[in-house]
Nucleic acid binder design. Structure first.
Lengths: 210, 210
DNA sequence: ATATCCTTGTGAAAAATTTCACAAAGATGA
DNA sequence: TCATCTTTGTGAAATTTTTCACAAGGATAT
Protein backbone atom coordinates (compact mmCIF):
# COMPACT_ATOMS: atom_id res chain seq x y z
CA UNK A 1 0.00 0.00 0.00
CA UNK A 2 2.93 2.32 -0.51
CA UNK A 3 2.71 3.07 -4.21
CA UNK A 4 1.23 6.15 -5.78
CA UNK A 5 -2.52 6.36 -5.97
CA UNK A 6 -3.99 8.30 -8.92
CA UNK A 7 -5.80 11.52 -8.11
CA UNK A 8 -8.63 10.30 -10.29
CA UNK A 9 -9.06 7.33 -7.98
CA UNK A 10 -9.45 9.66 -5.00
CA UNK A 11 -12.00 11.70 -6.90
CA UNK A 12 -13.98 8.58 -7.64
CA UNK A 13 -14.00 7.47 -4.01
CA UNK A 14 -16.13 10.53 -3.28
CA UNK A 15 -18.46 9.60 -6.08
CA UNK A 16 -18.82 6.07 -4.75
CA UNK A 17 -19.69 7.53 -1.36
CA UNK A 18 -22.54 9.53 -2.86
CA UNK A 19 -23.94 6.45 -4.54
CA UNK A 20 -23.56 4.36 -1.40
CA UNK A 21 -25.32 7.04 0.63
CA UNK A 22 -28.26 6.85 -1.70
CA UNK A 23 -28.34 3.06 -1.68
CA UNK A 24 -28.23 3.10 2.10
CA UNK A 25 -31.22 5.45 2.22
CA UNK A 26 -33.05 3.11 -0.14
CA UNK A 27 -32.62 0.40 2.46
CA UNK A 28 -30.21 -1.81 0.55
CA UNK A 29 -27.62 -3.77 2.46
CA UNK A 30 -25.19 -5.04 -0.12
CA UNK A 31 -24.18 -3.97 -3.59
CA UNK A 32 -22.06 -5.52 -6.32
CA UNK A 33 -19.23 -3.70 -8.03
CA UNK A 34 -21.29 -3.84 -11.19
CA UNK A 35 -24.28 -2.05 -9.63
CA UNK A 36 -22.21 0.49 -7.78
CA UNK A 37 -20.09 1.21 -10.85
CA UNK A 38 -23.19 1.66 -12.97
CA UNK A 39 -24.62 4.12 -10.44
CA UNK A 40 -21.34 5.99 -10.37
CA UNK A 41 -20.89 6.05 -14.10
CA UNK A 42 -17.65 4.06 -14.22
CA UNK A 43 -16.41 0.66 -15.36
CA UNK A 44 -16.77 -2.02 -12.70
CA UNK A 45 -13.18 -3.20 -13.05
CA UNK A 46 -12.10 0.31 -12.35
CA UNK A 47 -14.19 0.48 -9.23
CA UNK A 48 -12.66 -2.75 -7.98
CA UNK A 49 -9.19 -1.54 -8.83
CA UNK A 50 -9.81 1.75 -7.05
CA UNK A 51 -10.79 -0.09 -3.91
CA UNK A 52 -7.93 -2.56 -4.28
CA UNK A 53 -5.45 0.24 -3.66
CA UNK A 54 -6.68 0.32 -0.08
CA UNK A 55 -7.52 -3.27 0.76
CA UNK A 56 -10.15 -5.91 0.27
CA UNK A 57 -13.64 -4.80 1.13
CA UNK A 58 -15.92 -7.21 -0.68
CA UNK A 59 -17.08 -10.79 -0.42
CA UNK A 60 -16.87 -12.91 -3.54
CA UNK A 61 -20.24 -14.11 -4.69
CA UNK A 62 -21.99 -11.42 -2.65
CA UNK A 63 -20.54 -7.97 -3.19
CA UNK A 64 -19.95 -5.15 -0.72
CA UNK A 65 -21.72 -4.44 2.54
CA UNK A 66 -22.89 -0.89 1.99
CA UNK A 67 -22.55 0.50 5.50
CA UNK A 68 -19.14 -0.92 6.06
CA UNK A 69 -17.79 0.14 2.69
CA UNK A 70 -19.04 3.64 3.38
CA UNK A 71 -17.26 3.71 6.71
CA UNK A 72 -14.10 2.45 5.08
CA UNK A 73 -14.23 5.09 2.37
CA UNK A 74 -14.81 7.81 4.93
CA UNK A 75 -11.78 6.65 6.82
CA UNK A 76 -9.65 6.47 3.68
CA UNK A 77 -10.62 10.00 2.69
CA UNK A 78 -10.11 11.21 6.23
CA UNK A 79 -13.67 12.46 6.58
CA UNK A 80 -14.33 10.27 9.57
CA UNK A 81 -13.03 13.22 11.57
CA UNK A 82 -13.90 16.93 11.62
CA UNK A 83 -11.89 19.54 9.72
CA UNK A 84 -11.87 23.19 10.64
CA UNK A 85 -11.52 25.60 7.72
CA UNK A 86 -11.36 29.31 7.04
CA UNK A 87 -12.99 31.15 4.18
CA UNK A 88 -11.44 34.27 2.66
CA UNK A 89 -13.54 36.59 0.53
CA UNK A 90 -17.12 37.01 1.63
CA UNK A 91 -18.74 37.98 -1.64
CA UNK A 92 -21.66 36.19 -3.19
CA UNK A 93 -19.87 32.91 -3.65
CA UNK A 94 -18.15 33.04 -0.27
CA UNK A 95 -21.43 33.72 1.50
CA UNK A 96 -23.05 30.84 -0.30
CA UNK A 97 -20.28 28.49 0.75
CA UNK A 98 -20.56 29.65 4.35
CA UNK A 99 -24.15 28.49 4.24
CA UNK A 100 -23.49 25.37 2.17
CA UNK A 101 -24.95 22.54 4.28
CA UNK A 102 -23.04 19.75 2.53
CA UNK A 103 -19.73 20.98 3.91
CA UNK A 104 -20.87 20.54 7.48
CA UNK A 105 -22.51 17.23 6.68
CA UNK A 106 -19.20 15.94 5.36
CA UNK A 107 -17.34 17.18 8.41
CA UNK A 108 -15.92 20.45 7.10
CA UNK A 109 -16.71 23.41 9.29
CA UNK A 110 -15.92 26.99 8.41
CA UNK A 111 -14.83 28.51 11.71
CA UNK A 112 -13.32 31.73 10.40
CA UNK A 113 -14.53 34.17 7.75
CA UNK A 114 -12.36 37.00 6.44
CA UNK A 115 -12.75 39.92 4.08
CA UNK A 116 -10.95 43.18 3.41
CA UNK A 117 -14.04 45.33 2.98
CA UNK A 118 -14.86 47.74 5.81
CA UNK A 119 -18.54 47.33 5.17
CA UNK A 120 -18.39 43.61 5.80
CA UNK A 121 -15.94 43.28 8.65
CA UNK A 122 -17.73 42.96 11.99
CA UNK A 123 -20.97 41.68 10.51
CA UNK A 124 -22.17 38.19 11.30
CA UNK A 125 -23.06 35.54 8.73
CA UNK A 126 -24.28 32.07 9.57
CA UNK A 127 -23.26 32.75 13.13
CA UNK A 128 -19.69 33.63 12.16
CA UNK A 129 -18.23 37.08 12.59
CA UNK A 130 -16.41 38.41 9.55
CA UNK A 131 -12.89 39.48 10.44
CA UNK A 132 -10.30 41.68 8.81
CA UNK A 133 -8.09 39.81 6.44
CA UNK A 134 -4.90 40.73 8.26
CA UNK A 135 -6.12 38.77 11.26
CA UNK A 136 -6.14 35.51 9.39
CA UNK A 137 -2.58 34.40 9.98
CA UNK A 138 -2.82 34.63 13.75
CA UNK A 139 -6.23 33.01 13.74
CA UNK A 140 -4.95 30.04 11.74
CA UNK A 141 -2.09 29.49 14.14
CA UNK A 142 -4.25 29.64 17.24
CA UNK A 143 -6.92 27.36 15.82
CA UNK A 144 -4.38 25.09 14.11
CA UNK A 145 -6.32 25.13 10.87
CA UNK A 146 -5.04 23.14 7.93
CA UNK A 147 -7.59 23.98 5.19
CA UNK A 148 -8.30 27.37 3.64
CA UNK A 149 -10.92 28.29 1.06
CA UNK A 150 -10.28 31.25 -1.24
CA UNK A 151 -13.25 33.03 -2.80
CA UNK A 152 -11.63 36.39 -3.43
CA UNK A 153 -11.17 38.11 -6.78
CA UNK A 154 -8.30 36.70 -8.81
CA UNK A 155 -6.20 39.81 -8.30
CA UNK A 156 -5.64 39.21 -4.59
CA UNK A 157 -5.81 35.43 -4.52
CA UNK A 158 -2.04 34.92 -4.57
CA UNK A 159 -1.37 37.16 -1.60
CA UNK A 160 -4.22 35.57 0.30
CA UNK A 161 -2.71 32.17 -0.46
CA UNK A 162 0.62 33.39 0.85
CA UNK A 163 -1.01 34.45 4.13
CA UNK A 164 -2.76 31.14 4.47
CA UNK A 165 0.47 29.25 3.99
CA UNK A 166 2.25 31.50 6.47
CA UNK A 167 -0.51 30.73 8.93
CA UNK A 168 0.18 27.01 8.58
CA UNK A 169 -2.50 25.95 6.11
CA UNK A 170 -1.51 22.83 4.18
CA UNK A 171 -4.40 22.57 1.73
CA UNK A 172 -6.23 25.25 -0.23
CA UNK A 173 -9.49 25.13 -2.12
CA UNK A 174 -9.19 27.97 -4.62
CA UNK A 175 -12.18 29.41 -6.44
CA UNK A 176 -10.27 32.34 -7.94
CA UNK A 177 -9.45 31.82 -11.61
CA UNK A 178 -5.66 31.93 -11.24
CA UNK A 179 -3.12 29.21 -10.71
CA UNK A 180 -1.58 29.80 -7.33
CA UNK A 181 2.07 29.44 -6.55
CA UNK A 182 2.68 27.67 -3.29
CA UNK A 183 5.56 25.90 -1.59
CA UNK A 184 6.05 22.20 -2.17
CA UNK A 185 4.05 20.15 0.27
CA UNK A 186 1.05 22.48 0.08
CA UNK A 187 -1.89 21.10 -1.87
CA UNK A 188 -4.09 23.36 -3.98
CA UNK A 189 -7.36 22.31 -5.56
CA UNK A 190 -8.74 24.73 -8.10
CA UNK A 191 -12.42 25.11 -8.86
CA UNK A 192 -12.88 27.36 -11.85
CA UNK A 193 -16.59 27.69 -12.48
CA UNK A 194 -16.17 29.50 -15.79
CA UNK A 195 -13.85 26.75 -16.94
CA UNK A 196 -16.60 24.20 -16.54
CA UNK A 197 -18.99 26.25 -18.64
CA UNK A 198 -16.26 26.78 -21.20
CA UNK A 199 -15.80 23.06 -21.59
CA UNK A 200 -19.53 22.72 -22.16
CA UNK A 201 -19.29 25.49 -24.71
CA UNK A 202 -16.51 23.59 -26.45
CA UNK A 203 -18.66 20.50 -26.54
CA UNK A 204 -21.63 22.37 -27.99
CA UNK A 205 -19.47 24.12 -30.52
CA UNK A 206 -17.74 21.04 -31.89
CA UNK A 207 -20.48 18.47 -31.62
CA UNK A 208 -21.44 17.21 -35.04
CA UNK A 209 -25.06 18.09 -35.54
CA UNK A 210 -26.49 14.56 -35.60
CA UNK B 1 -7.93 17.51 -37.11
CA UNK B 2 -10.62 14.91 -36.74
CA UNK B 3 -9.18 12.77 -33.96
CA UNK B 4 -10.24 12.76 -30.36
CA UNK B 5 -9.05 15.57 -28.18
CA UNK B 6 -8.55 14.80 -24.49
CA UNK B 7 -10.92 16.46 -22.05
CA UNK B 8 -7.88 17.45 -20.05
CA UNK B 9 -6.62 19.43 -23.01
CA UNK B 10 -9.87 21.38 -23.15
CA UNK B 11 -9.64 22.07 -19.44
CA UNK B 12 -6.15 23.42 -19.88
CA UNK B 13 -7.18 25.74 -22.71
CA UNK B 14 -9.27 27.64 -20.17
CA UNK B 15 -6.30 27.82 -17.86
CA UNK B 16 -4.11 29.20 -20.62
CA UNK B 17 -6.74 31.85 -21.28
CA UNK B 18 -6.60 33.01 -17.67
CA UNK B 19 -2.83 33.33 -17.85
CA UNK B 20 -2.97 35.11 -21.20
CA UNK B 21 -5.58 37.52 -19.84
CA UNK B 22 -3.22 38.43 -17.05
CA UNK B 23 -0.23 38.81 -19.35
CA UNK B 24 -2.30 41.03 -21.62
CA UNK B 25 -3.23 43.26 -18.69
CA UNK B 26 0.44 43.45 -17.76
CA UNK B 27 1.04 44.92 -21.20
CA UNK B 28 3.01 42.03 -22.66
CA UNK B 29 2.70 41.32 -26.37
CA UNK B 30 4.25 37.91 -26.87
CA UNK B 31 4.92 34.93 -24.68
CA UNK B 32 6.86 31.70 -25.11
CA UNK B 33 5.40 28.29 -24.45
CA UNK B 34 7.85 28.01 -21.59
CA UNK B 35 6.60 31.17 -19.87
CA UNK B 36 2.95 30.45 -20.48
CA UNK B 37 3.31 26.87 -19.33
CA UNK B 38 5.07 27.99 -16.17
CA UNK B 39 2.29 30.46 -15.42
CA UNK B 40 -0.29 27.78 -16.03
CA UNK B 41 1.46 25.12 -14.01
CA UNK B 42 2.02 22.67 -16.84
CA UNK B 43 4.89 21.28 -18.89
CA UNK B 44 5.72 23.38 -21.94
CA UNK B 45 5.68 20.43 -24.32
CA UNK B 46 2.19 19.71 -23.14
CA UNK B 47 1.10 23.26 -23.81
CA UNK B 48 2.50 23.06 -27.32
CA UNK B 49 0.85 19.72 -27.88
CA UNK B 50 -2.48 21.02 -26.59
CA UNK B 51 -2.36 23.86 -29.09
CA UNK B 52 -1.15 21.58 -31.87
CA UNK B 53 -4.50 19.77 -31.81
CA UNK B 54 -6.02 22.91 -33.25
CA UNK B 55 -3.38 24.38 -35.52
CA UNK B 56 -0.18 26.38 -35.48
CA UNK B 57 -0.36 29.55 -33.48
CA UNK B 58 3.22 30.44 -32.71
CA UNK B 59 6.27 31.81 -34.44
CA UNK B 60 9.51 29.92 -33.99
CA UNK B 61 12.14 31.99 -32.34
CA UNK B 62 9.53 34.38 -30.96
CA UNK B 63 6.64 32.62 -29.28
CA UNK B 64 2.95 33.43 -29.32
CA UNK B 65 1.25 36.75 -29.90
CA UNK B 66 -0.86 37.07 -26.78
CA UNK B 67 -3.91 38.84 -28.18
CA UNK B 68 -4.19 36.60 -31.17
CA UNK B 69 -3.69 33.40 -29.21
CA UNK B 70 -6.40 34.52 -26.82
CA UNK B 71 -8.78 35.15 -29.68
CA UNK B 72 -7.97 31.77 -31.14
CA UNK B 73 -8.58 30.02 -27.84
CA UNK B 74 -11.87 31.82 -27.38
CA UNK B 75 -12.95 30.67 -30.79
CA UNK B 76 -11.86 27.10 -30.16
CA UNK B 77 -13.80 26.99 -26.90
CA UNK B 78 -16.76 28.67 -28.52
CA UNK B 79 -16.75 31.57 -26.10
CA UNK B 80 -16.38 34.10 -28.88
CA UNK B 81 -20.16 34.10 -28.92
CA UNK B 82 -22.81 34.53 -26.21
CA UNK B 83 -24.53 31.59 -24.54
CA UNK B 84 -27.88 31.86 -22.83
CA UNK B 85 -28.36 29.60 -19.81
CA UNK B 86 -30.98 28.77 -17.23
CA UNK B 87 -30.38 28.15 -13.56
CA UNK B 88 -32.55 25.76 -11.56
CA UNK B 89 -32.57 25.91 -7.77
CA UNK B 90 -32.27 29.37 -6.29
CA UNK B 91 -30.78 28.53 -2.92
CA UNK B 92 -27.61 30.05 -1.56
CA UNK B 93 -25.39 28.60 -4.25
CA UNK B 94 -27.82 29.32 -7.05
CA UNK B 95 -28.20 32.94 -5.97
CA UNK B 96 -24.46 33.32 -5.84
CA UNK B 97 -24.08 31.98 -9.35
CA UNK B 98 -26.78 34.32 -10.62
CA UNK B 99 -24.62 37.16 -9.39
CA UNK B 100 -21.30 35.60 -10.44
CA UNK B 101 -19.72 38.27 -12.65
CA UNK B 102 -17.23 35.91 -14.33
CA UNK B 103 -20.02 34.07 -16.12
CA UNK B 104 -21.18 37.17 -17.90
CA UNK B 105 -17.60 38.24 -18.61
CA UNK B 106 -17.01 34.93 -20.34
CA UNK B 107 -20.18 35.24 -22.35
CA UNK B 108 -22.54 33.07 -20.32
CA UNK B 109 -25.75 34.81 -19.39
CA UNK B 110 -28.36 33.37 -17.08
CA UNK B 111 -31.63 34.42 -18.67
CA UNK B 112 -33.98 32.20 -16.70
CA UNK B 113 -34.11 31.33 -13.01
CA UNK B 114 -36.37 28.60 -11.63
CA UNK B 115 -37.29 27.24 -8.23
CA UNK B 116 -40.10 25.18 -6.78
CA UNK B 117 -40.54 27.17 -3.59
CA UNK B 118 -43.63 29.35 -3.35
CA UNK B 119 -41.76 31.89 -1.31
CA UNK B 120 -39.20 32.45 -4.04
CA UNK B 121 -41.26 32.31 -7.22
CA UNK B 122 -42.15 35.79 -8.45
CA UNK B 123 -39.29 37.50 -6.65
CA UNK B 124 -36.58 39.20 -8.63
CA UNK B 125 -32.86 38.53 -8.27
CA UNK B 126 -30.17 40.28 -10.27
CA UNK B 127 -32.91 41.60 -12.50
CA UNK B 128 -34.28 38.15 -13.23
CA UNK B 129 -37.69 36.99 -12.14
CA UNK B 130 -37.75 33.60 -10.49
CA UNK B 131 -40.24 31.30 -12.18
CA UNK B 132 -41.98 28.10 -11.23
CA UNK B 133 -40.00 25.05 -12.13
CA UNK B 134 -42.73 23.58 -14.31
CA UNK B 135 -42.36 26.53 -16.65
CA UNK B 136 -38.81 25.65 -17.54
CA UNK B 137 -39.43 23.30 -20.42
CA UNK B 138 -41.51 25.79 -22.40
CA UNK B 139 -39.08 28.58 -21.60
CA UNK B 140 -36.14 26.58 -22.92
CA UNK B 141 -37.90 25.85 -26.15
CA UNK B 142 -38.93 29.44 -26.76
CA UNK B 143 -35.52 30.82 -25.94
CA UNK B 144 -33.68 27.96 -27.65
CA UNK B 145 -31.36 27.49 -24.70
CA UNK B 146 -28.69 24.83 -24.83
CA UNK B 147 -27.07 25.09 -21.38
CA UNK B 148 -28.69 24.43 -18.01
CA UNK B 149 -27.20 24.82 -14.54
CA UNK B 150 -28.54 22.68 -11.70
CA UNK B 151 -28.13 23.91 -8.14
CA UNK B 152 -30.98 21.99 -6.56
CA UNK B 153 -30.74 19.44 -3.76
CA UNK B 154 -29.51 16.05 -4.92
CA UNK B 155 -32.91 14.47 -4.42
CA UNK B 156 -34.57 16.37 -7.26
CA UNK B 157 -31.58 16.85 -9.55
CA UNK B 158 -32.40 13.89 -11.79
CA UNK B 159 -35.94 15.01 -12.53
CA UNK B 160 -34.73 18.55 -13.15
CA UNK B 161 -32.16 17.16 -15.56
CA UNK B 162 -34.92 15.26 -17.33
CA UNK B 163 -36.92 18.46 -17.77
CA UNK B 164 -33.93 20.31 -19.09
CA UNK B 165 -33.25 17.63 -21.65
CA UNK B 166 -36.91 17.58 -22.67
CA UNK B 167 -36.68 21.31 -23.16
CA UNK B 168 -33.80 20.84 -25.58
CA UNK B 169 -30.78 21.51 -23.37
CA UNK B 170 -27.64 19.79 -24.65
CA UNK B 171 -25.21 20.57 -21.85
CA UNK B 172 -25.68 20.59 -18.10
CA UNK B 173 -23.53 21.99 -15.35
CA UNK B 174 -24.55 20.01 -12.29
CA UNK B 175 -23.73 21.12 -8.75
CA UNK B 176 -25.89 18.48 -7.07
CA UNK B 177 -23.84 15.60 -5.68
CA UNK B 178 -25.38 12.85 -7.79
CA UNK B 179 -24.36 11.40 -11.10
CA UNK B 180 -27.09 12.22 -13.55
CA UNK B 181 -28.43 9.86 -16.13
CA UNK B 182 -28.95 11.53 -19.47
CA UNK B 183 -29.39 10.45 -23.06
CA UNK B 184 -26.35 9.97 -25.24
CA UNK B 185 -25.34 13.20 -26.90
CA UNK B 186 -26.08 15.27 -23.79
CA UNK B 187 -23.01 16.49 -21.94
CA UNK B 188 -22.94 16.74 -18.16
CA UNK B 189 -20.22 18.43 -16.15
CA UNK B 190 -20.33 17.76 -12.46
CA UNK B 191 -19.01 20.15 -9.86
CA UNK B 192 -19.06 18.50 -6.46
CA UNK B 193 -17.75 20.99 -3.95
CA UNK B 194 -17.59 18.50 -1.10
CA UNK B 195 -15.60 16.17 -3.32
CA UNK B 196 -12.90 18.79 -3.68
CA UNK B 197 -12.63 19.22 0.06
CA UNK B 198 -12.60 15.46 0.47
CA UNK B 199 -9.63 15.15 -1.82
CA UNK B 200 -7.83 17.76 0.27
CA UNK B 201 -8.77 15.78 3.35
CA UNK B 202 -7.27 12.69 1.76
CA UNK B 203 -4.09 14.57 1.04
CA UNK B 204 -3.83 15.86 4.60
CA UNK B 205 -4.60 12.47 6.04
CA UNK B 206 -2.03 10.51 4.07
CA UNK B 207 0.75 13.03 3.75
CA UNK B 208 3.79 11.78 5.54
CA UNK B 209 4.57 14.27 8.26
CA UNK B 210 7.84 15.67 6.87
C1' DA C 1 24.40 37.54 -46.67
C1' DT C 2 25.67 34.74 -43.09
C1' DA C 3 26.05 33.09 -38.59
C1' DT C 4 23.93 32.65 -34.28
C1' DC C 5 20.29 32.26 -31.28
C1' DC C 6 15.67 31.19 -29.84
C1' DT C 7 11.52 28.64 -29.76
C1' DT C 8 8.06 26.07 -32.10
C1' DG C 9 5.94 21.76 -33.68
C1' DT C 10 6.17 16.92 -33.45
C1' DG C 11 7.78 11.99 -33.86
C1' DA C 12 9.12 8.67 -30.53
C1' DA C 13 9.60 7.01 -25.78
C1' DA C 14 7.92 6.82 -21.30
C1' DA C 15 4.51 6.86 -17.92
C1' DA C 16 0.00 6.57 -16.26
C1' DT C 17 -4.57 4.90 -16.41
C1' DT C 18 -8.21 2.03 -17.90
C1' DT C 19 -10.15 -2.15 -19.44
C1' DC C 20 -10.11 -7.06 -20.22
C1' DA C 21 -10.58 -11.54 -18.78
C1' DC C 22 -10.27 -15.12 -15.64
C1' DA C 23 -8.74 -17.87 -11.54
C1' DA C 24 -10.04 -18.08 -6.92
C1' DA C 25 -13.23 -17.43 -3.09
C1' DG C 26 -17.30 -17.84 -1.20
C1' DA C 27 -22.56 -18.24 -1.41
C1' DT C 28 -26.52 -21.07 -2.32
C1' DG C 29 -29.35 -25.03 -3.00
C1' DA C 30 -30.10 -29.90 -3.64
C1' DT D 1 -21.27 -33.04 0.68
C1' DC D 2 -21.16 -31.64 -3.91
C1' DA D 3 -22.33 -29.00 -7.87
C1' DT D 4 -23.48 -24.66 -9.49
C1' DC D 5 -23.66 -19.87 -9.48
C1' DT D 6 -22.04 -15.29 -8.38
C1' DT D 7 -18.76 -11.80 -7.89
C1' DT D 8 -14.37 -10.32 -6.18
C1' DG D 9 -9.43 -9.23 -6.77
C1' DT D 10 -5.80 -8.88 -10.01
C1' DG D 11 -2.15 -9.97 -13.64
C1' DA D 12 -1.76 -8.74 -18.38
C1' DA D 13 -3.08 -6.09 -22.42
C1' DA D 14 -4.75 -2.04 -24.35
C1' DT D 15 -5.31 2.65 -24.41
C1' DT D 16 -4.50 7.25 -23.22
C1' DT D 17 -1.78 10.97 -21.75
C1' DT D 18 2.48 13.11 -20.76
C1' DT D 19 7.20 14.05 -21.42
C1' DC D 20 11.47 13.97 -23.96
C1' DA D 21 14.41 15.58 -27.34
C1' DC D 22 15.51 17.56 -31.53
C1' DA D 23 15.03 19.01 -36.47
C1' DA D 24 13.35 22.88 -38.71
C1' DG D 25 11.67 27.61 -39.02
C1' DG D 26 12.25 32.12 -38.26
C1' DA D 27 14.25 36.28 -35.77
C1' DT D 28 18.20 39.16 -34.91
C1' DA D 29 22.72 41.13 -35.27
C1' DT D 30 26.91 41.77 -37.66
Amino acid sequence: MTWKIPASTIDRLSIYMRALDKLGLDGMETVSSLQLAELSGVNSAQLRKDLAYFGQFGTRGRGYEIKSLLQNLRKILGVDKKWKTVLIGIGNLGSALLAYPEFKEEGFEVVGAFDNSFSKVGKKLEGIKIQEIDKVEAFLKIEKIKIGIITTPATVAQEVADSLVKGGVKAILNFAPVSLNVAKGIKVKNVDLSKELESLSYFLTHKKTV
